Simulated scan of single mutants.
Amino acid sequence: MATDASLDGDTRTERLHSGSVSADEFKAVFRGHPGGVAVITAYGENGPVSLTASSVSSVSVDPPLLIFSVSALSSSTPVITAADTIVVHLLDADDVDIARLGATSGVDRFADPTTWARLATGEPVYLGARAWVRCAIVDRLEAGGSTVIAAHALQANIERDVESGAAGNALVYHNRSWHRLTEHSRIS
C-alpha cells in the first residue's frame, strides 16, 4: 500500500482534492465563523484603492508579520498585490462606515477628501480608524481564486486603544452582517 510520502506530487494532490466540499458547503461552514474586520489600502498609478477583509491575522511578533487574502474578483486586488507597501486598518464598531465603503463595489472609496490622507511614504490612510499598520509586502501566494499576502509591519498608529482584558468595541463580520462585540457579548 502506498503512503502519501511515496506518492508523486500530482497523485498526492489528486488524492487530497478528491471529495472536496462544494463551494456552497464551504461558505455555510464559514458563515458561522466570525472574523475581525479590516480595510486594506494601497496607492497605484491610477490613485488609491481599498477593500474590506475579514482574513487579517497576526503571524509573528518578532519579526512583526501579518497575513491576509484578497479575492481575484475585487477591482482593488491588482493594485494591492502589485504594491510594495500597503496599510491595514484594524477597525472597531465606530469604523463600520469605513468597512462598508471598502466592501461596496462601484463607488469612489476616496471621493471625500476629508476622510483620508496620504502618509509621508505615499500610502492612503483613512483618518480616525481605530488602528492602522503600514506594511511592506514580503510574500504572495496564489491560492484558488485568491492571493494570500504576508506583510511586515513597518509603522503603527492606534487612535483608540483597548486595554488588556477589556471588551473594547470590536467589529466582526458574522453570517453576512456586521456585529459589535461589547462587555455584554462576553461569556467568560
Rank of each mutant, 00 (worst) to 15 (best):
P48R: 02
T52Y: 07
S57C: 13
S20H: 10
R15L: 06
T52V: 09
L91R: 01
H17V: 08
G35S: 02
S75Q: 11
K27P: 10
Y43V: 15
V39Y: 01
S69M: 10
S75H: 14
S71Q: 08
T41K: 00
S60D: 03
A93K: 04
V56I: 09
P64S: 03
A28I: 00
L51I: 07
V70M: 05
E45H: 08
L91K: 02
I98Y: 09
S75K: 12
L7D: 03
F68M: 10
T77E: 04
L90N: 01
L91C: 01
V21H: 08
S75T: 15
G102W: 13
D84T: 15
T41Y: 04
A53T: 05
L73Q: 12
S57Y: 03
S60R: 03
D97E: 15
V29Y: 13
L91I: 00
I86L: 09
G44T: 08
D94N: 11
V87N: 08
L66M: 02
T52I: 03
A28Q: 15
D94F: 01
A93E: 03
L51F: 12
P48H: 04
A93I: 02
S54R: 12
D95Q: 03
G32A: 15
H17C: 12
I86W: 09
G102D: 02
I80M: 05
S60N: 11
A72K: 09
S18A: 08
D24N: 08
A53I: 05
D95V: 09
E25D: 15
L7A: 04
Y43E: 12
G47Q: 01
D62T: 12
S69Q: 08
A42M: 06
I40Y: 00
T81Y: 03
S18Y: 11
L65R: 15
D94T: 04
V21Y: 02
A82F: 04
D92R: 06
S20T: 15
A72V: 10
V96H: 04
